[in-house]
Amino acid sequence: MLPIDEIRGVDDVSRRPGHEGFRPVAPWPNARIPPASQPGRPSVPVRTRAGKPMTPVFGTSSPLRGVSGMIRRWAYTFPEHRARRWLLLILADRVEATGPRLRRLAPLAVPLLFATFAAFRPRARMGRVRVSMLHLPRDSGSRLATGR
């Protein structure tokens, strides 16, 4: 790569592509006017562009589903300049993320749940009168430790 001294000032204003007038106002090569319309359903609700026609192309990745989908659908009923649209979308993200989070916790949480359930042995306790519920966790812990 060339040193700084040799590259300095090579791009004067007229050579910068963002400079006004650098490119004539015209369609890009291969562009169709108007573009053909994509069949199918987009993965974002159409109503978000109220008053505008559907775009000719759209993405179909990860369609709306479940509770997070319902929140997102509601969020998109509000225009972009309303904060509630964005806050609802963020809420939906958090709701959706609980699924993967639970899945990642499962290898640890499921055995722990079984162990706790076994320690409590609820069926064995049915019909008994427990004087103090405060001792229940401690008893369960000692049962786990001693195996009795």
Partner: peptide
């Protein structure tokens, strides 16, 4: 970007109005 809309023709392909149904 579509290459044919108002913005694309001006070179502002990052502002194309024909590819994002989610809004402006």
């Amino acid at each position: 970007f579509c290459g044919s809309c108002y913005y694309c023709q001006q070179g502002l392909t990052a502002c194309c109005e024909n590819t994002n149904p989610a809004g402006d």
